[in-house]
Design a protein around this nucleic acid. Structure first.
Lengths: 191, 191, 191, 191
DNA sequence: TATGAATGAGCGTTCATTCAT
DNA sequence: AATGAATGAACGCTCATTCAT
């Protein structure tokens, strides 16, 4: 796992971090179609520098997605630990909000021109594992119906991200969240 | 809207229709990244002919979306007339399925690099009017909760299309539809 | 074999011919490493035009080599028909001289970064067939020793091209030709 | 020629020798197109170190050629001393075989994008002097015809290297060597 | 009016060379 | 003196759009 033979020179590490940050912002704002040259320009480095740290454009994209995914999973765990019954809803709406501002992540999730499962199988597994865990807790707490599984939740996440992106970060989504809660709530004597 | 000074020569009209049809199929199957040359080739015309009818690639895309939207609205009206209570659900799931096979429409709906409201305000208005109409009928029939509005429905449509695109046309979505029904159903003594 | 559905528009044909001619001269003078952009510039067209006629750089190179090879084979046949005994020598020295001015052909022959046999198997076969034919005639005429075969001749051709390229078109090679004749002449009582 | 003001520190000398050796092997095996970074990596030094010793890629190439040439000349002298009559042939075929495995040397000899005479006049002079010497010995021994000179021999060497490179190190060349012997042998009553 | 040839800016990527550490 | 990170000019190739035929 220690796949960094040496800890990278200080200036190189700074550049790498800068490229990563700029690339994250740029992909988030404009999607994966942004040229590498543009990212290099915004980061104030030459294109070659980007390629030194990330051998292909796709690898840069992957690095960003993996990073975001990891952060999101960590936050999800914290939320679920704080309140198991609400954990799944908090997770769901957290990811939805990410989707509003992070086009790159949305594309990765939805598989639009980038296959998360194939490109980052480990990250995908970690993510799905966390979903399953948090879902089980919520089902035990009685806040989520027992007949949905982790795949269903991922599907809903993709949908929610799309909705959020469509509507922006506005108050509109606050109208939609209760609908999603109703969708997942334990059903009382289904009519 | 009548921005065609003359009603087009017969062969020109045929060409236009043919390009539109081929472009729809091609964009739907392979996304908006397909070159215009490829569409021209499949339509059996020169690239210049495509550009005569549609001055930019984007305008061709818009024309397709307008066309599809119109058809979808017509079908929605027919479904709602046949069964007012089920009409909204039928409409919703019809559009979702379109999203599974029609990348162009999905992108237009989600506003990914294409603002429907701005580009085709009339089509958008017609669409939203129909949604409002069918929604009102369902609410009167008691199959949809009264506190959702047409904008909410459009938001859900965008989400459903994204889910469908993500999962394909598979049986998986049949698991999700009941959740959406639960989301929209009249709530019985909400806890 | 009629793989040109239509005979090409006049201006396109002119451009194609111009690109071919310029590319021939440029590859001949500077080898296959010349950028396509440079060829386009010299031909007075855009890079896209080159790519319209030849889908890859390699295909352009191949087209030129095939053309040259064909011409050379035709001239070889004529020479051999005029004087069967001298035909092989004439052919050999003709190709050697080509090598002096045509780096592209030399590279193709020598297999330097371009595998003639693999890329143009038909041209290669035609070439080798002609060599075998002319060689057999010379052997029957008693001007070439019977224990050499077509492959040996090709090897000598590669060598002669290299020599010619090395020495230029100078009179120096006129000193070398008699050595090659001695190499191939029927041996008198080998010492 | 003593253009080294100081005799280099021990570690620097070691680095220089190591780069030279690795670069030779690498160029020989994979041609001059290998990036300098790759050579540096294989030599276990930084790219900057290569550039400290050899200010351009071409100068590194030249140093290698000079080195090889020197070695070849030494071996040639030994061979000729052992058997003056056979010396020239041994030299010729030795160099030819080098050409089969050493792309760099071949290119240097053939003058393909690298003019030996201009770049390394001293090495060239030493080489040609040795050729002349060994040739004279063979001519005195009666194994080589008297009307060829050192320049002719160099021309043949270039040709033989090209042939060897073309055919690889295979048995095929064993068919060609006798032809070269016949080319150079003293002629018996030429018809 | 239709054709499809031509344009040329742009993209992802490489690599000889320079320079801060 | 050594390192290896950074640079930036190419390169092969694509494609939306224009324009001569």
């Amino acid at each position: 796992m220690t796949d960094r033979p040496r800890p990278l020179r200080a200036d190189a590490a700074r550049n790498r971090a800068r490229v990563l940050q700029v690339a994250y912002e740029t992909f988030a704002a404009e999607g994966a179609a942004v040229p590498i040259d543009e990212i290099a320009r915004r980061a104030g480095v030459g294109a070659g520098t980007v390629y030194r740290h990330f051998p292909t454009k796709e690898s840069l994209f992957q690095a960003i997605v993996a990073d975001r995914l990891h952060q999101v999973v960590e936050r999800a765990r914290a939320l679920a630990a704080a309140d198991p019954g609400e954990g799944l809803y908090a997770f769901l709406f957290l990811l939805a909000e990410q989707g509003a501002t992070d086009l790159g992540l949305t594309e990765a999730f939805a598989g639009t021109g980038f296959d998360l499962t194939e490109a980052l199988p480990e990250a995908e597994r970690e993510f799905m594992g966390t979903v399953a865990e948090i879902l089980a807790q919520a089902q035990q707490a009685g806040t989520v119906r027992p007949d949905v599984d982790a795949a269903d939740i991922k599907t809903l996440m993709v949908g929610l991200q799309a909705m959020h992106r469509f509507r922006g970060d506005s108050e509109h989504m606050r109208r939609v969240y209760p609908l999603i809660r109703a969708a997942l709530a334990v059903q009382k004597a289904e009519g």
